[in-house]
Design a protein around this nucleic acid. Structure first.
Lengths: 284, 284
DNA sequence: GTAGATATCTGACTAAAGTCAGATATATGA
DNA sequence: TCATATATCTGACTTTAGTCAGATATCTAC
């Protein structure tokens, strides 16, 4: 991997140079590009760019503003925040960056045969997926946290359970049992977007895993197993030596994950009307 | 490819940050690292680092020298040049960079399963090879040029022809027919090292391709065909509509390249005692 | 031996990138 | 309502990275 970095950056790093030739310094061009990918608040921008200094970003936005490439206005939802978006001129600049970058990439790949180009694309796609997978972070959050809510939204939508939330609630059933001290909820995120979630709670004297979901695009990448290990560790920490869970036949990939993780089929242990399969595992 | 760059650099780019934490600025650390990969003249260093300004490099070397990480002394072979190498302290620093970088890579890959790690390595190796292949440059040089000499050295070594050069010559037979105006010689280089070569000349009223060689590590990557197309174009430019060539059975890959490029077998057309196969192609 | 060419160095410079300490205005919770 | 926290901005600053124009010593070809 390190060998690849050295060699790749030396050769292709120049791709980034295409940001130049736009009359903008690299940092400023990067910000312009990022705004073009999606307008938003200054703060979002800073995070997406990897935590740049607020003063630094502010100054660059001022530059872009005086050049007429972006507009900055207060966020109606929170007067402290400011919303940034591209002007028409800014969009033109952005398209320009995009085109130049595309051109450079084509030129670079020109000497390759079509078959080699296909192989390269495939290899890069694989590498990208795996690196993304490696940099997914699993974090414990409150089930009422927006990220958790978003993830559970996907979960309930997928199992077609329109009753996952109580009418009148603002979000999906805030199950207090999934919060400390006797429970926990985890969200796995990639680039700030939730790609998997799951919770542990106590039920009938043992640990129980609930609401485990993995983004369809991420299935088969080992993320389910990783999350499950995380949940089991938490169950153990909460003092359980046995965990159980129920699931339904629609979630076929999930069933595979449980089986490969050493779960054994058991009889129905609760009265969940939607559940079709029940599992159990000894921990420790 | 561009998508990969954005995503990869954002995630793994931080690998380069490991150059920091060494108390050295990035540029200086890069030089130190490069010296550690192989001592040599300042010039070699500059080229390996992608053509940095001589003043800039000189200054950084001065910094490293006063820190006691490198020694710089005149090259006995050419008093204008200076040789750079690591001191013991410098080697320690280098190992440190190496270790930190390695650590960082391991940490990054930690969440992946061994199978995923293998897949990633394979994908990166493929991508690296192809990107290297794409950035190989083919340039016309004088056959007496050191690069050409080095490439021909490999060629003669491989065909086991100890008589490729005339005794008393400093290098490999400087065949004036491979120089303009009636001939040309080309070297393909990757990272400053020759990986393929070949020449065209006039022989008996038609074009003739001579001394075509591809580094064994690069065979099967389409480089031979690419070089051959180059040589054919040159032959055409020199006014030939037919090219011929001879080769010997030891160079089996080469024979495949000629056949796939549309060459047809012909009878012996010269008295080269080592040649076993003879080919011909109409151009244009 | 002399006229270039080459390799490195020095000094003077610029621009980009980033840091840090407040200032200001708005939001939030007790 | 008041203390505190948050989001952004401004000004003053430092470090890196890189450029350019000579200066100097050495080599090469004629």
């Amino acid at each position: 991997m390190r060998k690849f970095n050295m060699s790749y950056v030396r050769r292709v790093g120049a791709l980034e140079d295409s940001f130049l030739g736009s009359g903008l310094p690299y940092g400023t061009a990067r910000i312009l590009y990022e705004i073009g990918l999606g307008a938003g608040t200054v703060q979002e921008l800073r995070i997406r760019l990897g935590g740049l200094d607020s003063g630094y970003v502010s100054r660059m936005l001022r530059t872009l503003e005086t050049k007429g490439y972006v507009t900055v206005k207060p966020d109606p939802a929170d007067g402290r925040r400011r919303l940034v978006e591209l002007t028409e001129d800014g969009l033109k600049q952005w398209d320009d960056l995009e085109r130049r970058s595309e051109e450079r990439a084509h030129q670079l790949l020109d000497p390759l045969t079509p078959r080699q180009r296909d192989r390269l694309n495939e290899a890069l796609a694989t590498a990208d997926l795996l690196v993304r997978a490696a940099t997914i972070t699993i974090e414990q959050v409150d089930p009422r946290d927006p990220m958790a809510q978003e993830a559970m939204g996907h979960y309930f939508a997928e199992i077609g359970d329109r009753f996952g939330f109580t009418v009148g609630d603002e979000g999906f059933g805030d199950d207090p049992s999934l919060r400390p001290p006797h429970g926990a909820f985890f969200v796995a995120a990639s680039d700030g977007a939730p790609v998997a979630c799951g919770g542990v709670r106590e039920f009938d004297g043992t640990g129980e895993i609930k609401r485990m979901w993995v983004d369809p695009a991420w299935r088969g990448a080992g993320l389910g197993s990783r999350l499950l290990r995380h949940l089991e560790a938490e169950a153990l920490r909460l003092g359980h030596t046995v965990v159980r869970l129920d699931t339904r036949d629609v979630l076929s990939e999930a069933i595979g994950v449980y089986e490969r993780a050493g779960y054994e089929r058991i009889d129905r242990y609760n009265d969940n009307p939607h559940a079709t399969h029940f599992f159990r595992k000894e921990l420790g």
